[in-house]
Design a protein around this nucleic acid. Structure first.
Length: 448
RNA sequence: UCCUGAGUAGCUCAAUGGCAGAGCAUUCGGCUGUUAACCGAAGGGUUGUAGGUUCGAGUCCUACCUCAGGAGCCA
């Protein structure tokens, strides 16, 4: 430890400095930037809660303190003591008149902090993600993420749901579709990383009524877009005695709550991120609802008017450009329901009005962020589910336990899954989900 | 897997087939209100890899590698 002139003051964090105006406090953090103007230094400190500029006139401090700070390297860790002073020139409204400094660890001159205040490329930043997270924007995003995750669990905790997390290691593909990460399970057996906990929480929903799960999910798909990670966090509610209408209402109330929580607690962070909060203030239930058929008509009309490039074929799933167009017609998330059953999962309940359609919903976030929630009412008939499993060419024995749920007191039930990273990307207005998680796992990257 | 694009100084990028450069960062010097501070100077290069065309290749051709954006699939 290298020590310079030290004085003591009340330990404080930058976020709470307004409450310490006029007081002498000690901050513990890092040197974020340093500007010098002859006999005047302007160090900027960060401590994880924010940044503040210090001011150090040569005449006001000891020679030792001045020289130590003048030669200090960026991202060196420090304890700095000074008097909090309101100043209209400061972005946060406050500055610190530095009186004392203890250098905890000085970054060596030969190995300067690699991330500068200037622009960097994506590859370089991701290669240095362990250091990139220190920058104000990335820290702000991670704070918002934390609030979104807390609100995502809190809403269910406050509304009668019991958290029941499913296993991460599973014996087979939950839905028999996506590519999974495979691993050896003590020799004879293979295990797979979960792609969804849904089937398991259907079991716990029939035990506890209303349940949810919240955890990491894995997809080995070679997806390479701004919306995909190979490891991401998903929150999934499941309710017994619930039909599609209940699921729609839950989804709109849920998202409204999460957005409200972020707006309530993160105005400063959203400003650092550069988010237009007026786009979030409109996010209140009820959300617009359109059926697949209505969405198709909307796309057909748009194609006729030359607003979109590719014609959407009735009966086909929507592509990303289609979803973007649909979501751009609304100022809040749009709930698209009753897709053709043909390209949806085997466990979705058919619509009694039109059995070729499934009682399902995709919630598309505004501003082109695409699908953030996918849900459905589940098949509750034993015979129908059995024939669906067979039609999809899935192994019956692997799904016997799942069929059992329809044998012992089956009820209408359903729920949805929400991808946390896509919600964070949308709420923060980010270009790519890789910035929404501390260490993103993508197709081409597993370091650091 | 497919399509498109990009790899040049630590970083971000320039360079008609003809001497490989700038800004930032680093080091040194100057400046008492800077806001990605500014001004001056210095150091810093096997142009992704391997071949090929050419008097001459960062530049053109072939293959490969890496990364990015998109499609498909999905949350």
């Amino acid at each position: 430890m290298e020590t310079s002139v030290t004085t003591t003051g009340t330990i404080a964090t930058i976020a709470t400095l307004a409450a310490h105006e006029g007081e002498t406090v000690t901050l513990r953090g890092w040197l974020y930037n340093l500007r010098a103007s002859g006999k005047l230094l302007f160090p900027i400190f960060r401590d994880g809660t924010g940044t503040i500029q210090g001011i150090v006139p040569k005449a006001a401090v000891s020679e030792e303190l001045f020289e130590t700070l003048k030669n200090l390297t960026l991202e060196s860790s420090v304890k700095v003591t000074g008097k909090v002073r309101a100043d209209s020139r400061a972005p946060s409204g406050f500055e610190l008149d530095v009186q004392g400094l203890e250098v905890v660890q000085r970054v060596a001159d030969e190995t300067p902090f690699p991330i500068s205040l200037k622009e960097h490329g994506v590859d370089f930043l991701m290669e240095h993600r362990h250091l990139w997270v220190r920058t104000p924007r990335q820290s702000a995003i991670l704070r918002v993420r934390a609030t979104i995750m807390r609100a995502a669990a809190e809403y269910f905790d406050n509304n009668g749901f019991t958290r029941t997390d499913p296993p991460i290691l599973t014996p087979n593909a939950c839905e028999g579709t996506s590519e999974l990460f495979e691993m050896d399970y003590f020799g004879d057996d293979k295990a797979y990383l979960t792609q969804s906990g849904q089937l398991y929480i259907e079991a716990t929903a029939l035990a506890l009524g209303k349940v949810y799960s919240f955890g990491p999910t894995f997809r080995a798909e070679k997806s390479k877009t701004r919306r995909h990670l190979t490891e991401f966090w998903m929150v999934e509610p499941e309710m017994a005695f619930a039909e599609l209408e209940d699921i729609l209402q839950l989804a709109e109330n849920y998202l409204s709550y999460i957005v409200a929580e972020v707006l309530k607690k993160h105005q400063a962070d959203l400003k650092v991120i550069g988010r237009d909060v007026s786009k979030l203030e409109t996010i209140k239930a009820p959300f617009p609802r359109i059926s697949y058929d209505e969405a198709h008509a909307m796309l057909a009309d748009a194609f006729a008017k030359g607003l979109i490039e590719n014609e959407h074929k009735d009966g086909d799933d929507f592509g990303s450009p289609d979803e973007t167009y649909i979501s751009n017609q609304f100022d809040r998330p749009v709930m698209v329901h009753r897709y053709p059953a043909a390209f949806k999962a085997f466990y979705m309940q058919p619509d009694p009005q039109d059995p070729t359609k499934a009682l399902c919903v995709d919630v598309l976030a505004p501003e082109g962020y695409g699908e953030i929630i996918g849900g459905s009412q589940r098949v509750d008939s034993y015979d129908l589910l059995k024939s669906r499993i067979e039609e999809h060419g899935l192994p019956l024995d692997a799904f016997q336990w799942y069929l059992d749920l329809r044998k012992y007191g089956s009820v209408p039930h359903g729920g949805f899954g929400m991808g946390i990273e896509r919600v964070v990307a949308w709420i923060c207005g980010l270009d790519h989900v890789r910035e929404t998680i501390p260490f993103a796992r993508t197709l081409n990257r597993i370091y650091p």
